[in-house]
Amino acid sequence: MSDPRPSPAQSASSGNSTAPLELGGSVWLRAGQQTLGGAARIALLAAIRDTGSITSAAKAVGMSYKAAWDAVDVMNNLAGEPLVMRAVGGKGGGGTTLTPRAHRLIETFDAVEREHRKFIERASAAIEHFAGDWALIGRIGMKTSARNQLYGIVSRVKRGSVNDEITLALPGGQPIVAVVTHESTETLGLAVGAPAFALVKASWVMLVADDTDAGQPLRLSARNQLRGVVTQVTRGAVNAEVSLALDSAEGGSPDLNSTVITAIVTNESVDTLGLAQGTRATAVFKASSVILGTAD
């Protein structure tokens, strides 16, 4: 599979018409319906091949020792057969080797990536606005059970003793905060300027009637508080689906192009809060309820 897209820096500066546009992309391999790995995991396999050591390979590709073994375990499991073999014994405690299947996988990936580069060059030259359109096609084609699939750019990474706090700026500027493990930050390549998407189930989103002073955050423990205007209320037998168009970060009212977040609440809550099309409300959810993902 391939994912041609502009780099994070280019995506962040797409509003600058004077900046040169370059088309980028990535390739990843699948085993059946499961994604086996992209450039980062194949690079790890190649480093293991070249060094014969998981420790040296991890350093070569900028991974922690644990993250490298986690990636190896995932690849072995998804392939349905070993790709990396641990050797026991020896002065250094044994080495790490690749199976013939892993060697073929690296060769296949390199060949596909070479052809992918040629494809990108041809497509970029032939199709206007190819980079942005192809990236969008990839995002809207994503399948997940989470009702809310929100795209943004990482604006802050705060390292903690156990977990990291990642802030994602939505297109309108309002932030979403997620708490993830160090390994997830590293594996997903979450750094300032990197594009990512946030998944939030509608049942995890609470709504609060906006009867407070504009711009004043609610006094709640939940980190994410996104203000906006109700655009749709769809009632069911017990629950209702409420969609909220988000304000811009500068306090501007939402428009037809605003990011929309959806919550599932009871019909009784809709009536109690007076939620109807055009009323203002705040969507509230915990940082631990946010799942982050990247295209590669």
Rank of each mutant, 00 (worst) to 15 (best):
A198I: 00
S253K: 15
R227H: 12
A222K: 14
V157R: 13
T167Q: 12
G160Y: 09
A131Y: 05
A263E: 09
E165K: 15
G252S: 08
G138N: 13
G160K: 13
V180Y: 02
P195E: 08
I140Q: 14
G252F: 04
H129I: 04
G141V: 04
I166G: 05
G141M: 05
M206V: 06
T144L: 01
R122A: 09
N163W: 01
E128M: 10
S253W: 08
L190Y: 02
G251S: 02
L218N: 09
V238C: 06
T167F: 02
G228I: 06
G132A: 10
H129T: 09
V208R: 15
L220K: 09
S145P: 04
G160W: 06
A146S: 13
S124T: 11
R159N: 07
L218Y: 12
A240F: 07
A123E: 14
G132E: 13
N224Q: 10
N257C: 03
P217H: 13
A240R: 15
I127M: 11
D133L: 11
S161N: 12
I137R: 15
N163Q: 07
V177T: 15
V177W: 03
V162Q: 11
N239K: 14
V200W: 01
V157S: 06
A237E: 14
G132N: 12
A135P: 00
V205Y: 06
P217Q: 12
L244S: 05
N148G: 03
T187G: 00
E186K: 15
A202C: 06
L190A: 05
V233D: 06
L188T: 08
G160Q: 12
K158Q: 12
E121Q: 14
E128V: 14
V238H: 10
P175K: 14
L207K: 15
Q174P: 01
R156V: 00
T212S: 13
T234Q: 15
E186W: 10
A249P: 00
P217M: 11
P195W: 02
V208F: 06
G215H: 11
V177Y: 01
L246A: 09
E121K: 15
F130Q: 12
Q225W: 01
A169S: 13
S258T: 12
G141R: 14
R227T: 13
Q225R: 07
W134H: 09
D213T: 14
Q232T: 09
V179D: 05
H129C: 04
T185A: 10
L226D: 09
S145W: 02
K201M: 03
K201G: 02
L220D: 03
A209F: 06
A240T: 14
S161I: 10
G141I: 05
G141N: 14
S221T: 07
P175L: 07
L168S: 02
E183V: 08
N163K: 04
V179I: 13
D210N: 15
P254A: 07
A169C: 04
I137T: 13
P254N: 11
V242K: 15
A222D: 05
S161W: 05
S203T: 15
T234K: 15
G236S: 12
V233G: 07
G252I: 08
S184P: 00
V200F: 00
V154H: 04
V230G: 10
V177S: 05
Q149G: 01
S161A: 10
G215T: 11
V200C: 01
G141W: 04
S161Y: 04
H129V: 05
E165I: 07
H129A: 13
E165D: 06
G251T: 03
S155I: 03
V205L: 06
R122P: 00
